[in-house]
Design a protein around this nucleic acid. Structure first.
Lengths: 343, 343
DNA sequence: TGTTAGCACTCAGGGGCGTCGAGTGCTAAC
DNA sequence: GTTAGCACTCGACGCCCCTGAGTGCTAACA
């Protein structure tokens, strides 16, 4: 593919991303200074179509890029946009104004990304269960209940009200906490060894108390990892995309966005790959083969925390999405650290 | 208004709620057994229009109810639907499956209501600041930070990571907690008297430590009462309403739903009124004068907790919305109590 | 006097049709 | 290899007409 073809392809993709209308040869001749006439561009476009980079609804409608065309554009033609300092400070201000607690980071990140890109944003939060147990403490609530507070090395803090078995005192609970802290020290929450349970069993003789202890642990665990782990943003933003002009189309994608398991699967498939773009038919899942996904994984001190992604029509501002996610990539760690994650 | 007119009005409202199409005289004659011909019904409908209960887009389109018409229907004609036992157990199951922590009750309630009614649901959660301070405890995190856990009488538990001033030890923090617990005992969080602050000041000599104490208190306070207090559900459900067939209309209402302050204002206006219906033009806010709102306030042991509401087009299944909210009214207390709210 | 049948009238929605404009593909000339 | 020219295609738009649902009015009926 010679250079002129590439410039034509680039022109088509850029114009189509901007206008959402099929692009014709004259438009390109007018708006891009290629130094050749529409007729020549037409010839080039016909070639590009033969090569599979462009598509045609019918004769006499302009061209639109194919998945392959977008792919070539993203890999080679696109000039990477950089966030301006102003944009960066805006992002900073967003977090400072809205995020008060570590738990809110993920939802707000999703909101921010969707707001900037006008597409759906997905944030796969780190699994609490992947982080190491730090300590469990009890606080007295009243004579029959107390509050269990579980902390992990990653900085998660989880609280629960637990009923105390009749006859048990708050001191029993504190003793139980000491036992649990001893036995679970350093375990990651998703892989508590059987031995730890046996040890707890042997140290807590009272049956009811032992049950309560297990209850505390399991309830602390089963919370975050379920449906709370995926955060969505921008289901309203996409209404401004011309692709979603008719409500049926919107309903379709919203329905899909409700299937959390599916989304997690899609995101998990990209885990650990750094910044990655999946375009149109490259998607395995049929329902989004007219969409593209840009994913990035974010880290803290070298450890993988989770994935953030932008999901939108293939006609997406890839440069913008990628630079934003790229920045987030680095920036999220700072936010997380500032809010008390353990450094 | 004689009985036949009422029966005609009822027929028009019911049919229109069901079909979302203007209702004609023949349709009514066919579908409702009024014992008179379409011509007679036409005459009655003309009268009802004169009286302001029905409206006309143009000659020769069927009638649709006016706000006044809906009002008459809701107040007198509508047969109140009751939730079946099956529906009740479904609601119960919903909560048991999805709500693990008290904080999730509100979001899930919004989801449930919107799911059942296919309209937007709003849940105004109780203000944490309205409940009384119970106690503040610290847990050690590492050598420079600790976790503050604040509990209120209503059962809210709030945790925060706070930095310890250099030189301060965890024991200092525990002492501080004792002072604060003494001074704030019984205060409601939105009305901490100046005297309490003075007392804390006098007991904590270290300047930095005092600042940290204030920080803990204020941070615990400013959290829940802000944007976290209103929960929304069903922004996707409304897409299935024919009123929102065109995207512009959807965008309009979604935009409005983002204005939390406005929504809170609207809901707050209904606080304490029990079950209440506001129809179309009865709404003060212009943007929703083609919508209706059904609100209900929920209580626990006689104390007002918050408001739940259904927002949808005037063509709404009032009976269903009202019976659902009515049931929630009673039921929410149970859920809340089960999850550890103080009884 | 209330009810009904009949009839003229109205209006939205849908199909058919011609026009316009943007765009292509092909060919011949440069 | 590039370009101008030209025939062709197709969607969008506006126009017209038809149809069907519905009304309002009037006159006849019980």
């Amino acid at each position: 593919m010679d250079e002129r073809k590439q410039r034509v392809l680039q022109a088509v993709v850029q114009d189509y991303i901007e206008s959402a209308e099929p692009v014709g040869s004259r438009t390109i001749a007018r708006r891009h200074d290629l130094g050749v006439s529409p007729a020549t561009i037409r010839n080039e476009m016909a070639d590009l179509e033969m090569l599979g980079y462009l598509e045609h609804i019918h004769t006499s409608s302009g061209r639109i890029p194919s998945s392959k065309g977008y792919r070539f554009y993203v890999d080679g033609l696109m000039q990477p946009t950089r966030l301006t300092d102003e944009e960066k400070t805006q992002i900073d201000r967003w977090y400072r104004a809205r995020v008060k607690r570590i738990e809110e980071v993920f939802q707000e990140t999703a909101r921010l990304i969707s707001h900037v890109t006008k597409n759906v944003a997905l944030v796969l939060a780190p699994q609490m269960t992947k982080s190491a147990f730090r300590c469990l403490q009890f606080l007295p609530l009243d004579d029959r209940r107390s509050v269990a507070v579980l902390m992990t090395d990653a900085g998660f803090i989880e609280n629960r009200i637990v009923a105390m078995p009749s006859g048990a005192s708050f001191e029993d609970f504190q003793r139980m906490a000491r036992v649990i802290n001893d036995c679970l020290a350093g375990c990651t929450l998703d892989a508590i060894p059987k031995a730890a349970y046996r040890k707890i069993r042997s140290e807590i003789s009272d049956e009811e108390l032992y049950e309560a202890a297990l209850d505390v642990i399991s309830r602390a665990l089963d919370d975050r990892e379920g449906r709370n782990r995926l955060y969505l943003g921008g289901t309203r933003e996409i209404l401004s995309q011309p692709e979603f002009r008719d409500v049926e189309r919107v309903k379709e994608i919203l329905l899909m966005l409700e299937e959390e398991e599916l989304l997690k699967e899609i995101l998990s498939a990209h885990l650990g790959d750094g910044l990655r773009v999946t375009i149109g038919q490259e998607n395995d899942y049929k329902g989004i083969q007219d969409c593209s996904i840009v994913t990035a994984t974010y880290h803290l001190d070298g450890e993988l925390l989770g994935t953030i992604a932008v999901l939108g029509p293939t006609r997406m501002e890839y440069g913008k999405a990628m630079s934003l996610l790229g920045y987030m990539n680095e920036h999220l760690s700072d936010v997380v650290r500032r809010l008390g994650w353990q450094g």
